[in-house]
Write a protein that binds this DNA or RNA. Structure first.
Lengths: 244, 244
DNA sequence: CGATGCCTTGACCAACCTCAAGTGGCGTGG
DNA sequence: CCACGCCACTTGAGGTTGGTCAAGGCATCG
């Protein structure tokens, strides 16, 4: 049911229904995730309905138009959420890192797709079962409301970025954002690791891959960043990056 | 306040101070608003905490950074929600029409501003009191979750528009969207009335006022729309408008 | 070591922006 | 009732940002 079905957890599971689920308790992203701030009872009930799943890089845990039967919590890895136009143009609406929640739909079908950027572990909650839990633990529903409100706020920030910022401002704010999120996860905040391709960055910022590449080059020759690897950005002048 | 959730609502309605509040019951946008689909008891309780307010055109019911003490429901008129960059660049994140809800903040302060486009009537709910109601009527909180999820979905659509659509596609989709919303409100869907200025449309679509104006002119000379007044758009070829 | 895929760079182009002037509707005052 | 001014909108000319198309570099992997 969760993680690897190996010896340690099998032993603990023998004790009793409530002591039997160390997986969620041990979860490294729990303090960041949907399941944060739950008491023992709630956590156990949540654990009872969760399904741990793994995906390889490039797979799609959910697709626009699918029946919205589950909500998800990313545990390890990274993914993107995106929408497509009929002619193939793509807008990435967000990147998912450990602890991030996704899959909320305002009606019965998802309005966007998700694709993994690398191998991913996630928790999957059947929507119906979760809603039953909400009736007993309104706190869970409050938590979800908080998460969705937060995402709405991020979406509005992104609208401002897409509609009114220049290419260099877009890239700068993207890098700062990734750096902050890495820090929150306890990862190195300065050599920023980019789990996504240049094309993904372009589709997130409303630019082309060439413009993203050129903007990185500009920032590099201005001494604001360095690019030790193509998937790694070192911030060399934070204040000038923030000024953009 | 004197109602208990488990009382028979039919009986309760007959007597007491709450029988004296037909305002909410008569509300013309109730079937569209936050207060839709509530039973009599819930509606009475909600009515007990609501404050009706009026604003003149150009006023700001809430500003980015203000203490988020209230949530709002627009009853009549129209308004815009927007965010500003330090240098004054503006992105409108949405237009509000009767029945629309706004003022949800993910933390204790608003992350955007609201300004009326014309004289407006609205309902204002004190956030703390509303949250107390949520504890007794989880259905209210579910309703709010539904509204916020829906707004998130709209925000993602708007990201796709801002990042990946051309000027003419932006204007076309804006007009279709306004037309659909008018229809839902029981207003004429075809000569579309625009309650906002060209500048507002530009700030919504991530364009300049000149580009919006030119795009209207192009659509007009292509015979797709007519402009009987500057604030009125007549759709003359719906299918070609939808094709954009 | 060649093939592959991603990224970078270059030259050119077009969509959209900027700046500036012109138009038209509307309210005000003579 | 008309003249005027105001303001929002439209139109025009020219510039810039970012897009398009194409070639070249570079790392990874068989």
């Amino acid at each position: 049911m969760n993680h690897r079905p190996d010896s340690a957890s099998a032993t603990m599971r023998a004790v009793g229904p409530l002591a039997a689920d160390p997986a969620c308790r041990r979860c490294e992203v729990r303090h960041l995730a949907f399941c944060a701030a739950l008491d023992s009872t709630q956590l156990n009930e949540l654990h009872a309905i969760v399904e741990h799943k793994q995906f390889k890089a490039g797979e799609t845990p959910l697709m626009e138009g699918d029946e919205a039967g589950y909500v998800f919590n990313l545990v390890t890895g990274a993914a993107k959420l995106y929408k497509l136009l009929p002619d193939g143009r793509c807008q990435i609406t967000g990147f998912l890192l450990p602890g991030d929640f996704f899959g909320v739909a305002h009606d019965s079908h998802y309005s966007y797709s998700a694709e993994t950027l690398m191998d991913v572990e996630l928790c999957r909650f059947p929507r119906r079962k979760l809603e039953l839990l909400f009736d007993r633990y309104p706190k869970l529903e409050k938590r979800l409301l908080g998460i969705v409100s937060h995402e709405l706020s991020l979406a509005q920030d992104q609208m401002l970025l897409l509609g009114r910022r220049t290419a260099i401002e877009k890239v700068g704010s993207f890098l700062l954002d990734l750096s902050r999120r890495a820090k929150r996860l306890g990862w190195p905040a300065n050599p920023i690791h980019l789990p996504m391709s240049r094309q993904d960055i372009a589709d997130f910022l409303g630019l082309t891959i060439e413009t993203v590449s050129r903007t990185f080059t500009t920032l590099k020759s201005d001494g604001i960043i360095a690019l030790p690897k193509t998937s790694e950005v070192e911030v060399r002048d934070l204040s000038r990056l923030e000024m953009l």
